[in-house]
Design a protein around this nucleic acid. Structure first.
Lengths: 202, 202
DNA sequence: AAACTTAGATACCGATCGGTGCAGAATGAA
DNA sequence: TTCATTCTGCACCGATCGGTATCTAAGTTT
């Protein structure tokens, strides 16, 4: 029972799947799910349609994998923020990360988790639902973290973790919208600072 | 030189153009520019493609007219908010209006001015630009109003109208995103309250 | 070498996209 | 009535959509 599944017989893949997924993520980030055509995607990935289907399944699965990659890459600031020692630092790091990620040079403006999740035709409904679930998940993690802060006495007993999580997420979503409209890093960081000037907002 | 252009000869229009535009606005509101197909639009408007083209030009012009109608209808809260006597009331009314409009029963969730303006394929770029300009215009009006408040002594001399306008707009944009994700009126009103708990956020 | 799998290129599928052309009926002004 | 215009309805345009088929070439296993 040796585990010798090193190479699965046949000609090996001639492209770097991670690299290709990264490129696809950027296209989805900029154009959204419906706005990104297979022609756009495969051209950016440097592979043919057939190779894409063989490697990733179909457009929807490619999008889901791109979203995962986005979560672990550009959006990793969220997970890092949750590990900060105080609720104030969590909120501060979360918004600062959202500002940086939505205005990073060389990357599309805005947030992949927000792009294309607002309006959708029939073909984009599944992707839209996936993104709403993605944001809900992020909000739930913030809520749990703030609940923990209340339990630890870091936040006052009257603080409402649900409200605080929604508040932080709302500001972050607004920042993503502003970024697409051309707002700069420093402009949005000022907004983030203003949003947290009295924390918690009770 | 009499102005007798009452009826322009020929068979008169057999449908109410305002009513049709209202229906089109709702479709764009829900599905965005690219997500709304001509089939969706004309079915909702109750007219044929030909009639739509004769009355409104093309899809893009229809969208622009729908956006105007949105501004004067569901989004009229913005203009009303600007007339409030103090900056605090302006901000409060603006956010309350955005909460109500993005969660109004019988209307699509979210804001037409934000839907479909984040991600776009090639065919939606013009509409995307129009929406970004629309939001910029709203932000400029807020900025002027807050500048006036500073001039009048309603806001402290150190207050930054630019920042305040962007802050309010950012929260409103975030509220629109949250509404599409299913947030309720009361949840979002709590967020709006939290955002304005210390005003101005200096 | 045989078996197997993938790559690249190209053409194609049915469906839908935004937008038109056409036919025939309807309506009002001249 | 005559003429002009718009109505409805339907078929149609070229282009693009997501996805597939088919070919040959290439590389890695057994």
């Amino acid at each position: 029972m040796e585990i010798t599944r090193k190479a699965p017989i046949g000609r090996p893949r001639g492209f770097d799947a991670d690299e290709a997924l990264e490129r696809a993520m950027m296209v989805f980030w900029e154009q959204g799910y419906e706005g990104a055509s297979l022609t756009d995607l495969t051209r950016a990935m440097g592979i043919t349609r057939k190779s894409m289907y063989a490697a990733f399944g179909n457009k929807e699965e490619l999008f889901r994998k791109a979203l995962e990659r986005y979560t672990e890459g550009p959006a990793a600031y969220a997970a890092r923020a949750l590990e900060k020692p105080s609720a104030r630092e969590v909120a501060t790091a979360f918004l600062a990360g959202s500002v940086s990620t939505t205005t990073r040079p060389g990357c599309p403006a805005g947030c992949l988790g927000v792009q294309g999740s607002l309006a959708a035709g029939d073909s984009g409904r599944a992707a839209q639902d996936a993104l709403i679930a993605w944001r809900d998940d992020g909000r739930a993690r913030l809520r749990h973290r703030f609940q923990q802060a209340v339990d630890e006495g870091d936040l006052p007993p009257g603080a409402d973790p649900e409200l605080l999580a929604r508040y932080v997420m709302t500001v972050a979503n607004g920042i993503a919208v502003q970024a697409v409209g051309g707002a700069t890093h420093s402009e949005l960081q000022q907004v983030a600072d203003a949003a947290l000037r009295n924390w918690p907002p009770v």
